[in-house]
């Protein structure tokens, strides 16, 4: 299966690229939070889509809004105000009642977080926790347990049958993350949102978890939205990459193209700033400054104070979206009409 992928994943012009049937469509999503002093926009007019079975990565640094976006899709954070449209499989998620949303989360969308321990109840057995989503939906105890076992097997948890009755603290970090994945996958969702799922793990364990995710996503035709700060793990996993900076998606493209021909100065900077284990370079090119806090964003293009290519227009006018000849969706004054 792997070889097959390599052969077909060449560079294909954007116009003829086959897009999978749409599963999630996010339109002009903005996320605001009211603080004591002011209203702060965490995410600003973000639009993107995910097709069935497609693996999309959302890459960003702290404060970029990537995690808030993920939470917004699941409507997990009640402190923020959402505006825009989020269509999932024909349903407008933002108009659902809390109860309908809960059903949606259990059955059709799953989510995993960075810290597996925070998603696990220390006093409940692994089996019960994985089966819980099904039990809530009224699946019989026996069947729920069987399906929990199947998912754990699918995730290659060894001796899963014996370990159904053990507790989270008896598992290693990587195993816990698999259990959390099992909880998200047992309801057979169409979309899995994974927020920094491997950040707390050692590289070898990280690789195993990503391999599993890759395999399951292909087998089940499961769409995955991978949220991370690490471009390295994205490269081997995602079909498409979106780069988020300071509340906006500044670049989006097929993974192969994004890594080969990054268009936005931020994407380019990020790729050059990360040291690589496979080549020795004399000196890293660094991006000056630090990402801004959401409450203190620069005017115009929020990246302009750190940008090598900043022009007069960048300080005052927020760049619109342009599609470059390479098919990248970019927000930068270097491209497009201006």
């Amino acid at each position: 299966m792997g070889v097959d992928t390599i052969l077909t994943d060449g560079i294909v012009p954007a116009q003829v690229r086959r897009r999978p049937e749409s599963l999630l469509q996010v339109d002009q999503l903005s996320i605001d939070i009211a603080t004591r002093d002011a209203n702060v926009r965490l995410v600003d007019n973000v639009s993107f889509g995910i097709g069935r079975g497609e693996r999309v990565a959302l890459v960003g640094e702290s404060g970029s809004g990537k995690s808030v976006t993920a939470q917004a899709l699941m409507r997990l954070n009640s402190r923020v105000k959402l505006s825009g449209r989020v269509q999932f499989d024909g349903t407008d998620l933002l108009s659902l009642s809390p109860r309908q949303m809960t059903a949606m989360r259990g059955q059709r969308m799953g989510m995993v977080f960075q810290d597996p321990m925070s998603s696990l109840d220390p006093l409940m057995t692994i089996g019960d926790q994985v089966a819980e989503t099904l039990r809530i939906r009224g699946v019989s105890k026996r069947e729920a347990r069987q399906r929990a076992l199947d998912v754990l097997d699918e995730l290659k948890v060894e001796r899963a049958a014996e370990r159904l009755d053990s507790f989270p603290h008896e598992f290693s970090g990587g195993m816990r993350q698999r259990v959390v994945l099992a909880m998200a996958l047992v309801g057979e969702p169409h979309l899995l949102i994974a927020d920094e799922p491997t950040t707390a793990l050692d590289v070898r364990v990280q690789e195993r978890v990503l391999d599993l995710l890759d395999e399951i996503s292909r087998r089940r035709s499961l769409a995955v939205l991978l949220i991370t700060h690490d471009l390295g793990i994205v490269a081997g996993f995602a079909d498409r990459v979106m780069v988020m900076y300071s509340g906006r998606i500044v670049e989006e493209n097929e993974a192969t193209l994004l890594f080969a021909e990054p268009q936005h100065p931020y994407t380019r900077g990020l790729l050059e700033a990360v040291p690589r284990a496979d080549i020795t370079v004399d000196r890293l090119r660094s991006i000056s400054g630090a990402p801004p806090a959401p409450a203190a964003r620069p005017s115009g293009c929020t990246f302009h104070p750190r940008c090598d290519h900043a022009m007069a227009v960048c300080t005052s006018v927020e760049p619109g979206e342009t599609i470059t000849p390479l098919g990248a969706r970019v927000r930068c004054h270097l491209y497009g009409e201006g």
Binding site: R36, L42, E61, S62, S67, Q71, Q114
Partner: peptide
Amino acid sequence: MTLVLPTAAPRRKANF
């Protein structure tokens, strides 16, 4: 990564 909310900004203003 953790979500940094603006409420955790460096110096909180005291609103009594």
